[in-house]
Amino acid sequence: MSEAESNVRREPMDLAKAQVPVGRVHIISERCKQCNFCINYCPTKVLEYSPETNAKGYHFPLVAAGKETSCVHCRFCDLICPELAIFTTEMTDEDKAEFGIDGS
């Protein structure tokens, strides 16, 4: 790519129409072993450790305050979790209503 070309910002043609999914995070806290994979690799930094621990003494991920609607349902936290302790679902209309997101 020439220098001139690389200065042109390229945008997806359907950017205006593209819908970013909103995910809802589910955590099976008793399975977590605090490996940090999900928290570290979440692209939108949705997760943080819980102040409390589970029965085995591990801090588990929670949705950070203010990030309730930031999950993009990429599922990376789910797929990399060695303990199958976290997964996400795409927010339903009821979920969206609960979190005050415009469902349209």
């Binding site: 809802r24 995070v25 589910h26 955590i27 099976i28 806290s29 008793e30 399975r31 072993k33 085995k56 929670l62 949705v63 950070a64 305050a65 309730e68 303990e83 199958l84 302790a85 997964f87 609960e98 979190f99």
Partner: peptide
């Protein structure tokens, strides 16, 4: 209830792929 608590409630106990695993043995 804080928003953080809300989002994980009802707290999940089953992972969607659990049927293919011996989830009764988890944590492994």
């Amino acid at each position: 209830m804080s928003a953080t608590e809300q989002i994980i409630h009802p707290a999940a106990t089953v992972h969607p792929i659990d049927n293919l695993l011996r989830a009764d043995r988890f944590p492994h």
